[in-house]
Design a protein around this nucleic acid. Structure first.
Lengths: 298, 298
DNA sequence: GATTATTTTTGCGAAAAACTGATCAATCTC
DNA sequence: GAGATTGATCAGTTTTTCGCAAAAATAATC
């Protein structure tokens, strides 16, 4: 059950060089070493592979049959090994990460651009998930790391805070609040709002903020996705409290975005990995890049 | 440029066992040894392949991608190596030999039968050649050994005499010589004979025999193959001096075979190999078998 | 046919490496 | 929190490997 390539390597070298001496040189070894290696292999196999005199050398029947296999195996092994080495040295390979939709749309693109400039060959796959889904994907190793909304940590996960995404009021320019200079949560109470459904990670944050500040907002309409809410606002149905990062400014010209104070409520975005994770070099590079964007966010 | 399977073997074992301890046992190694082997491989690759805590272990992204390749390579290598080992231990494999047509038809079949009983899996390929062709085939390694007519040895060839194939007179039952009790070469002089062409290894033997004994035979007809000569004899064209082994008794009912004395001329059959040859185990076995038939021939 | 020259094999001491056993650290179970 | 299990680490020993030099083998040459 003792498998070793060292002898095979010697065999192939000798066969290709046509001489022990040159083969030894090509393997940076003394000719005595080569002889020993081949002898060991032949002893193990119980068959001579190379027929040799001092003047000439030729493959045995068995040796000739083995050579192509041996060569191919060696090349494939070396290839695999080198590929992995490259993946480490050059941080090559593809990376799969998971994040909540907002992050994927607004936060990541510029980071990915920067990453692609540095590692043009690498492919990044982004899994859009709810905040719970991101944790799950990371835990199950579907993604090497994730970006999600701060909250309850799973014990095996390790989080690094990235940025605070402040909640803002979104309304159309003809909304009563549209032109107020400063806005507080209490100001919203009279106005019916479009709210985001249960599954979004934003909801618990908003509910708690209301409770702690004794504010009670009216939910007029409940939608599941931020983009839907935005559409309703644009249609004039009402205003909505949304995470600032979720907005794509250009999409609707008449929409106003107002800062909300007293208190400033925000959702923290965190970069999560498994505590014991060994990231692939390509992923490690992206991870570090994301971390470096910690503060220069909106 | 340093390729070695030992680490890869450890990696695969660990991945498959799901534990260092059991992997160590499966490789008949201590746990520390396994750890070391994997560490060496990982150091060489510059990448962690297995993510491990004392309690759990899982493949890294890179490791997971590598595992199937590694497994396949190892299996193929072990397979090739074992195949060769078997070829030695069980003398498995196919053998190619070269011989002159006569031998292939009359001398070899029973040997091959015996060989096949002992090594039913082995395949024997026989190359029919002229006597010069047999030498060439052996020298050029087309055949592992050969059986041909004794004569000039090439320096690199080594011959073992096998049997003496005596020349006989072949004639139809209505031929004047057909019923003579004993026959000498001189008796043939009055009769026109069918002779075998230049390329046959028999010709020089016959010519020399005539010269040495002052006998001069009449060549009526020259054909290239023994079987053709036999056909002509059967048609009543004349008699022929042929090597005894060449005859298939059953073929022509009216044909008589007469021993030729004074002198008895025979062609020696020799078993030839290259002097430096390393026969494959399967060939070696056949070689020895052929040699054992040295004397019990017709 | 003996000699020479070249190349492989072998012997041996030194060096490197791998292996083991014990111990340590971390995690999980009870 | 104690005990058990598992991988990592370390030191010491064994094994293997390597390179040099001498020897053996073989082809070429004279």
């Amino acid at each position: 059950m003792k498998i070793d390539t060292i002898g095979v390597q010697a065999f192939v070298a000798i066969a290709e060089c046509g001489s022990f001496q040159t083969a030894a040189e090509s393997l940076f070894l003394s000719q005595a070493g080569i002889t020993r290696r081949l002898q060991n292999l032949e002893d193990y196999l119980g068959v001579k592979l190379i027929e040799r005199t001092t003047r000439s050398m030729a493959l045995t029947q068995v040796g000739a049959e083995f050579l192509p296999h041996a060569k191919r195996l060696l090349i494939e092994l070396a290839g695999s090994l080198n590929e992995i080495r490259d993946s480490g040295r050059l941080k090559r390979g593809s990376v799969t990460i998971a994040c909540v939709p907002t992050v994927g749309v607004r936060f990541l693109p510029r980071i990915i651009q920067a990453y692609s400039r540095q590692y043009p060959e690498n492919h990044i796959k982004i899994l859009d998930h709810t905040s719970a889904g991101v944790s799950r994907a990371v835990l199950q190793r579907e993604a090497e790391f994730g970006i999600t909304i701060a909250g309850s940590h799973h014990a095996e996960l390790f989080g690094v805070p990235l940025i605070e995404d402040k909640f803002v009021l979104v309304c159309r320019d003809d909304h009563p609040l549209a032109n107020l200079p400063a806005l507080e949560w209490r100001d919203l109470e009279p106005h019916p709002l479009i709210s985001i459904g249960q599954f979004s990670g934003n909801r618990p944050l908003l509910d708690r903020a209301q409770q702690e500040n004794g504010v009670s907002l009216q939910s007029l309409y409940e939608v599941q996705r931020v983009s839907t809410a935005l559409g309703r606002v644009a249609e004039g149905v009402g205003a909505a409290v949304l995470p600032g990062l979720a907005l794509q400014r250009e999409a609707y010209p008449r929409i106003r975005v107002l800062k909300l104070g007293n208190p400033v409520v925000s959702r923290g975005l965190v970069l999560i990995t498994r505590k014991t994770a060994e990231l692939s070099p390509a992923a490690e590079a992206l991870y570090e890049l994301v971390k470096s964007y910690q503060d220069n966010a909106e």
